[in-house]
């Protein structure tokens, strides 16, 4: 049973992304402990092996590290690493979609740029 996990992408990817989001937002700080796979799997009602896969992926990305006998912790510099990776993927993940939709409804590049300039966000 997934509460806010969707069916669009592999669960373990969603788990790792959520943890990355929390790091970016400051909910999880560097050198802080991350919930265990058991806690994660119970919280999201998913297979512990899947939760473990998500965690392991983050270990491979050097976002998390393991303190033997204690658990998983956020690595120093993790935030920076995440930002760098996401910047690289930003175009494919988000921008492409905006352009496709804009094309579909006939918004040209000028209008799009104006929207961004006028935007009150960020």
């Amino acid at each position: 049973m997934l509460d806010n996990l969707g069916e669009d992408r592999s669960i373990y990817l969603q788990i790792s992304e959520m943890i990355e989001d929390e790091i970016l937002r400051g909910i999880l700080n560097e050198e802080e402990q991350v919930p265990s796979t058991t806690e994660l799997s119970k919280f999201y009602k998913i297979n512990p092996a899947t939760a473990g896969k998500g965690i392991n992926m983050l270990v491979d990305k050097e976002v998390l590290y393991k303190k033997r006998g204690i658990g998983m912790f956020v690595q120093t510099g993790a935030k920076a690493r995440i930002i760098e990776e996401r910047k690289k993927n930003f175009y494919d993940t988000f921008v492409k979609k905006i352009i496709t939709e804009a094309k579909l409804i006939g918004i040209d590049k000028q209008e799009l740029k104006k929207m961004i300039d006028d935007s009150k966000e960020g």
Binding site: M1, T37, T38, S41, K42, K45, N47, T50
Partner: peptide
């Protein structure tokens, strides 16, 4: 999930109510 996490026992669950349990399998 608790029991599996703790013991690693094998579970085979047959069910009709697929969506709730799907992420367990």
């Amino acid at each position: 999930i608790e029991e599996y996490s703790e013991t690693g026992r094998t579970f085979i669950i047959s069910t009709h109510i697929i969506e709730e349990a799907a992420s367990l399998f």
